[in-house]
Write a protein that binds this DNA or RNA. Structure first.
Length: 596
RNA sequence: GCCCCCGUAGCUCAGUGGAUAGAGCGACGGUUUCCUAAACCGUAGGUCGCAGGUUCGAUCCCUGCCGGGGGCACCA
């Protein structure tokens, strides 16, 4: 619409506009900052005025003169302020859009015009150690992005790049050989492997303050002063194909996998593929060889590295002096394999921001090494560190971290308390089994939401109290809005299919109806913005907006007691609200109870 | 020493070129003969770290400085 107007503007010789700057100018039509100014406003007149040799307001008037609002907007009035072109969506257009969206399975969200193949790499825990709170961000953000991109119409391939081949297995192997408890392993293999990992890690690191706090580890460290080196030896033996270590690895892997699968099930997280580091192990020697052959990598101080920025800057090491490969080697092998087998347009890595330099180096190396790498966008979707209440990083290696499962349990337990209290006060007498189900959805939803709602680039202060708060900007607020929608349909015995059929268009006489309708129809914009910079918090902000608009609407206007077309129209708004919130939460990986 | 990220209301954080900078929590004050008050409405609270620059316009872009965090060859 504006494109056509600007085209006519150029054709009429008012101002020259190059075709490539058109998208930028059209981007200058956006949601108005203040509802009093209308629904959307265009600001391109100010940008173009100088070049046109006109006052911004006069140029805005020229644009308005050439604007065909196509029945969607009220004809714009005079330019406002320095040259804003304010637009208000026509009520009848808004009403028709609501009627169309309410019976559209995609809720008015058109699939992208040019679908891409996108590989999404997220979660990627080290399977030898228990999952803890530090794993939640990559897992939850990655899974949400996967669902959103898929819904947008892309071909999404999710891949869990498991850490199943590194030094942490050397620790378990060493522990198994020196201090295993067979009875404990028989009873609970996961717990025993976890114990071994934590114990050996302390002994191998031999940090005085840690050992002082753990007499058992200290005694072991005293007997095995060379533990650190021996652990690396065990790792190297595994990598070289030593039969004993290989057999133990085969024995441990299913145990470790079962453990993380249980947590994924509880988080509603899944993957199309789980190709861990071990999968690429047979290709690593070839990777180093290739890099050397094309002159990218060379030997230095016994190791082999890729020197990207001259000899002064640290290289990207792909082989250690002892012959072992590093995670850079694996990452490069992974990129090559993915490009070859999946031919993606984009590969997204949802990984801690502390690894940004690593990814810069790996991506740059891949681009120089693999000709087809330049056709794919390699993107590090970085997120901030999970901090404790004290503001210090939640380090796996620090010892006493919160286990992920214990965290989920606590969230659910707190939610159960709230559900039970609310139920008692209200006298709804929900059976305990239902209250447990609701608590699971609300508790885990709260934890996921707290993570997703924050801009991923900033550090994330983990706090039970904050994430389990069930009021305000939380999953529970949205879930509650849906429950109130359901309440209306249940109470009124209303047939939703009939409402969808019969709705000819919402009557939008009240500003609160109008605000809700407008918010509901911006779903597609929100999802588009999420994709633009891989930020799920754009979607949480949007859903919070919708839920807020609905709460205001719900509080002020009767639905079931309304009559005729107005009743149908309000029911349609309720129905669409329920559908948008449900779909939005589903895309974030958050369950929605029928009532709460 | 080099590189990256962050400094916005008492607290936790959105917003990243546009009109009077927003939300949640906390504080204070209102709303329930009415579809779930886990709600709604209102009030108070800000030199957007500091200083320059670019721009018609800067919290947002550039430069410098101050403060905080992180990373910088054989862990991942």
């Amino acid at each position: 619409m504006f494109g056509a107007a600007l085209g006519r503007l150029a054709a009429d010789g008012v101002v020259a506009i190059a075709p490539e700057e058109l998208p930028g100018l059209l981007d200058q039509v956006r949601e108005a900052a203040d509802a009093r100014h209308g629904d959307y406003s265009g600001t391109m007149a100010m940008a173009l005025a100088k070049r046109a040799g006109k006052k911004p307001r006069d140029l805005a008037a020229e644009i308005i003169r050439r604007l065909d609002v196509e029945g969607l907007f009220e004809p714009p009035g005079e330019p406002v302020g320095p040259g804003f072109i304010n637009l208000r969506v026509r009520d009848d257009a808004l009403a028709r859009a609501v009627a169309a969206a309410v019976r559209d399975p995609r809720l008015g969200v058109a699939p992208v015009a040019a679908p891409q193949t996108i590989v999404l790499d997220y979660s990627s825990p080290n399977v030898a150690k228990p999952m803890h709170v530090g794993h939640i961000r990559s897992t939850v953000i990655g899974a949400a992005l996967a669902r959103i991109l898929k819904f947008r119409g892309h071909r999404v391939i999710t891949d869990n790049h498991l850490g199943d081949w590194g030094t942490q297995f050397g620790m378990i192997l060493w522990g198994w050989k020196h201090c295993r408890d067979d009875a404990a392993f028989a009873a609970d293999p996961t717990a025993e492997l976890g114990r071994l990992y934590r114990l050996v890690r302390k002994v191998a690191d031999a940090k005085p303050e840690e050992l002082a706090a753990d007499p058992g580890a200290a005694a072991l460290a005293a007997r095995h002063p060379d533990c650190g080196r021996e652990v690396l030896l065990e790792t190297a033996k595994l990598h070289e194909g030593d039969p004993e270590n290989r057999a133990l690895w085969e024995q441990f892997m299913p145990v470790c996998r079962r453990e993380i699968e249980r947590i994924y099930a509880r988080l509603d997280v899944s993957f199309d593929h789980t190709l861990g580091e071990s999968f690429y192990q047979p290709m690593l020697a070839g990777v180093v060889h290739d890099l050397e052959a094309v002159g990218l990598a060379r030997e230095s101080r016994g190791a082999v590295g890729v020197f990207l920025d001259g000899d002064d800057k640290p290289p990207l090491l792909v082989r250690k002096a002892d012959g072992a490969f590093l995670y850079a080697t694996t990452d490069l092998a992974t990129i090559r394999w993915r490009l070859e087998h999946w031919k993606p347009d984009r590969i997204l890595y949802v990984v801690d921001h502390r690894q940004s330099q690593h990814f810069e180096q790996v991506f740059e190396t891949a681009r120089r090494w693999l000709p087809n790498a330049s056709h794919a966008a390699l993107v590090h979707v970085a997120f901030g560190t999970v901090l404790g209440d004290d503001g210090k990083p939640f380090k796996t290696r620090a010892g006493d971290t919160v286990g992920l499962e214990a965290l989920l349990d606590e969230g659910v337990a707190r939610a159960f308390q709230v559900v039970t209290t609310a139920d008692a006060e209200r006298g709804t007498e929900m059976p305990e089994a239902e209250r447990r189900r609701i608590a699971e959805a609300v508790g885990i939803g709260a934890i996921k939401y707290a993570d997703l709602a924050q801009n991923r680039t900033t550090d994330y202060v983990f706090s039970f109290d904050k994430m389990l708060e069930l009021k305000g900007n939380t999953a529970a607020y949205m879930q509650y809005a849906v429950a109130r929608v359901e309440g209306i349909f249940a109470k009124g015995g209303v047939d939703r299919a009939q409402v969808r059929r019969e709705c000819r268009g919402a009557t939008l006489s009240d500003r609160r109806e109008r605000a809700l309708a407008l918010a509901l129809l911006r779903f597609a914009e929100a999802l588009e913005d999420v994709e633009a910079d891989e930020r799920p918090n754009v979607l949480t902000a949007y859903l919070f907006d919708v839920a807020g608009a609905y709460s205001t609407f719900y509080d002020a206007l009767p639905v079931l007691k309304a009559e005729g077309a107005e009743r149908t129209a309000r029911l349609a708004l309720c129905d669409l609200t329920g559908q948008v919130l449900r779909r939005g939460l589903e895309l974030l990986g958050i369950r929605v109870p029928e009532r709460m």
